[in-house]
Design a protein around this nucleic acid. Sequence first.
DNA 1: CTGAAAGCGCTTACAG
DNA 2: CTGAAAGCGCTTACAG
Lengths: 332, 332
Amino acid sequence: MSNIREIARFAGVSTATVSRALSHPDKVAEKTLKKVREAMLKYDYRPNMMARNFRATKSFTILVLVPNIANPFFSTLIRGIEDVAQKKGYSVLLGDTRENEKNEDEYLSLIETRQADGLIQLTPYSPGSKLYPSYVLAVNAAGCEGTPYPTIRIDNREAAKTAIEYFISLGHRRIGVVTGLSENRHTIDRLKGYKQALSEAGIEYDSQLVVEGEFTMSSGKIAADQIVKMADRPTAVFCMNDDMAIAATQTFKSNGLKVPKDISVIGFDNIEYSKYTDPPLTTIEQPALKLGNVAASKLIQLIEGETLTESQFILPHEFILRQSVTTVLNNS
Amino acid sequence: MSNIREIARFAGVSTATVSRALSHPDKVAEKTLKKVREAMLKYDYRPNMMARNFRATKSFTILVLVPNIANPFFSTLIRGIEDVAQKKGYSVLLGDTRENEKNEDEYLSLIETRQADGLIQLTPYSPGSKLYPSYVLAVNAAGCEGTPYPTIRIDNREAAKTAIEYFISLGHRRIGVVTGLSENRHTIDRLKGYKQALSEAGIEYDSQLVVEGEFTMSSGKIAADQIVKMADRPTAVFCMNDDMAIAATQTFKSNGLKVPKDISVIGFDNIEYSKYTDPPLTTIEQPALKLGNVAASKLIQLIEGETLTESQFILPHEFILRQSVTTVLNNS
DNA sequence: CTGAAAGCGCTTACAG
DNA sequence: CTGAAAGCGCTTACAG
């Protein structure tokens, strides 16, 4: 717990020299450097980063706001953020908002009070619902079309469209969808893709087939229960994330339906669990780690004063074909 | 981006008074308070917490080190930590070590350099493998027997024993176990429970039935593949976490075994996914949220100078009976 | 109740 | 290459 003054005294130099020995060793004479280093070793000196950062008016910390850290898509993404942040000397402050505005505001104050240099927002707001003061740098790692700040994301509309087109190619005409909350931008973008695929195939959009979930497993279960009871049940269901798809699949099965024979399912995210469901889940892969990597590196660029050449970074998604989908039975 | 001096100037008072208006409003005259508050509003003043914390030589930040944030048990636990931390005015710095020592050392330096006031370590080291300098306060939220610092945990040995005893009560005699890495303290404690249950039932311990995993799904799959090929295959398998149990179950099934008819499975943790496997997984619940709550509140107590009355906080676990276990077939 | 002053542990422009 | 000095934005013991 020694400070720079003690080291200076012991090494017989000024505090300025000790500071230089640490930050610009090339500007210090070899002999002096040696003395200083010995003193640091002897007194087990560690620079006080709170002082350093305060002096530099920079916290070297980024704030990550996540709606639900228990969802592996988000936690993997966070891992991607951390990898880059750590490499570049930044720490990650975590804020699990649980989609609660009060929580979120409290976390955001960390930025206003200079405890974080920038923000990576993982909740996709509808544009304008939350505008950040201009001195906050924000990157929306799992963003969506129309966000007011730089965004890293996949093409959600296109990805959803691909899923629906695959159903259609196998003969499905009644295709259900389990969405997130209707105001969620992911929901909006993915729903666009759903509608577009239907329309291009000449299938009429039927709002009865759209069931609102909340991207949680329990909501997936509730949605599936609802679908099971439908008079004219869909033969295929697109769930807007894997958590809901996993819960829905199990719910269908426990209601006596066979997946995919009676009802096909496609998820979204490709979390690791989707590989181990029965049947293994066909899904859309979001490159979670990569999204996090890019988000962190772009945010750090902004923090360090560079300007971004683009404001939308669209990473490729991938259609992951497994066994939860089959051709529609010709029983209609 | 104004500072306390500007506010003082505008309000016509000293910086000391502005500071007091913020931290000890009761010590400031009503009229003065009003002037100061107006100035703060007008200039959109936010105190610089880096300066405040630096001054107080306290970061109001706790560091959480987690081996694998993609595992929902850990991410839920972190949520529990955050809830309490936020309430008490602390921020959570996240360090995903991936069980890599170099990563971990880098994160630990955040404490030595005063960027965090304390540490919650979620990786259960074998005692002595990592000793922290005495000025670091540490709580091992998912700890184990024999850790050298205060620990919040369940009784891992007893929990594992319960699982095995349940198998035995249904007639199982050849009981396999998929462990974590053998040096992991959780592995050690849970293995003790396994052996104890066998021994009390007069069943001989057979090391052939112990397969080492790494608490990951992929390792669970590998372990299951190995079990499937065993000449004298166990009729029941205890997996030391749900991730491995989920992967093992699916691997057994894709190898043509029926779960639980051909092979029974019990997991550990009770992550949400375990409810939606087919069959739903019988498991041991760890109170993840609660573990996090208690860890955070104990650590903050330590940081704030209180002494802990105990050094081991053992929270209750629960046996969760679902459908992945059945009586042994009388085919032997 | 209020202000002048010192100080938290660093860094850096300046002068030598 | 090195040191004296000023300053980052706060807080608090002290005096009034």
